[in-house]
Computed example of a mutant assay.
Amino acid sequence: MRALSHLKIEAGQGCQNMTMLADDLSRTDIINLGPKSNTSSEQGPKAIPNVEQHPNEHGGPETKPNSEIGSNTLLTIGSRRRFRSTADGLARADYSAASWGATVVDHSEPRYERDWPWLGWWSTWWNGVHHKAIHMLSPSFGEPGRCFPLKGRSGFVVVKLREPIVPEAITIEHVLDSVVDDRSDAPKDCRVTAWLQHDRYDGKKNEFVLAEFSYDVRKSNVQTFGVSGSVAKARDEAVVNMVELQFGSNNGSPVSTCIYRLRVHGHKPRS
């Protein structure tokens, strides 16, 4: 009888504790975005803190939580992911995107920024292409240094496109001047050639000039240039799958020229 009474007492205490715990949870804010209001009649509904809008390098918004959010980083992470997915928004297909299957197949001498030049030479020799070459075919999201650095003021890069296309325009991207003090390593006078290559033994058969232009660091960091008039008139007859970017000068750096991103726009042949 004593054991049964003891169990009844413990059960009663357990129910009381569960009731108190439920009351405590009902009074707890799961995500504390601001001071807790005492009564709804005194302060009204709780306002969600404002989120400041800042333009990113492509002109789109980038959300940054203000100081009211404090340690709550959930909004920041979600906003970065959402706007990173649209940061590449030129609304034009890029057939030189590495994520779409394009590759760098040749280039001039790269600049090795480390103290072990033999490591850079080894990585280049292994497949003929430097391991940083993929950076120029991928979004940089405005990060300084996320580029393909080539030695000197002039050089070239050869890219195999995802598939044969009719080219329409070329886009060159460099880092924003708001995040670096010096953009003298940006390419300046550029010449782009292209050709159709069926296999690696074809070489540069039927190579022609796609476009010639100058990248101006005083303008937008993302600049698009149309193909020459003769190429535009040729329409579907000018089908290419290989593109070579040649730069004869940069904006002043005697050490290196950095290609942050190259994009090749066009459409599939209609015939």
Rank of each mutant, 00 (worst) to 15 (best):
E207C: 04
G203W: 02
S26P: 00
P167L: 06
R81P: 00
Y260W: 05
K204W: 02
F247H: 09
G128K: 10
V239E: 03
P65G: 05
G44P: 09
N206L: 04
L150Y: 01
E173R: 06
T73E: 07
T171N: 02
S108L: 08
Q16C: 10
K233E: 15
W122H: 06
D199I: 06
D23E: 12
E42C: 07
V105K: 05
I30Q: 10
L21E: 11
Q53L: 15
W125P: 00
W121H: 08
E109N: 07
T124C: 05
G89P: 00
I77A: 11
P139Q: 13
S228H: 05
T171H: 04
L210G: 07
G248T: 10
V157Y: 01
R183K: 14
E10C: 11
L196A: 06
I170Y: 05
I30S: 12
L161G: 00
F83Q: 14
P149Y: 04
D181A: 14
G14C: 11
A234E: 13
I69F: 15
Y201H: 11
R81I: 09
R153L: 01
S85K: 11
L176T: 14
Q197S: 13
S5F: 14
R81Q: 09
V264M: 08
V129M: 06
A232H: 09
S230R: 13
G60N: 10
G59W: 06
R218S: 10
D181T: 12
F148Q: 02
G101K: 10
Q246V: 09
F208G: 01
G89K: 10
S99M: 13
L7E: 08
P110Q: 03
Y260L: 02
W100V: 12
V243I: 12
T19C: 05
L210H: 06
S271I: 11
A98D: 04
K219I: 04
H130V: 00
K8I: 15
E207F: 02
T257V: 03
S178G: 08
A234C: 09
Q223F: 06
D199H: 13
H265S: 07
S271M: 11
A169I: 01
K268Y: 06
A234M: 13
Y95A: 04
I259Y: 02
P55F: 10
S123M: 09
A3E: 12
S96R: 07
E212A: 07
S178L: 09
M136E: 06
T103L: 11
V239L: 02
S178C: 08
E52F: 13
H6T: 15
G226V: 04
P61R: 09
T224R: 14
V105M: 02
P110R: 01
T86C: 05
N66G: 10
V264L: 05
A47W: 12
K204M: 08
V105R: 05
Y95W: 13
G89N: 09
V192N: 03
H58T: 12
L196S: 08
R114Q: 11
G266K: 03
D94S: 05
Y215W: 08
S220D: 13
N221E: 06
I9V: 11
E52A: 15
T73F: 04
P139K: 11
Y95N: 02
A102L: 05
N50I: 10
S230D: 15
L25R: 14
L4C: 07
T76M: 09
A11N: 15
R80N: 08
D23I: 08
L196Y: 15
Q53R: 15
G229V: 02
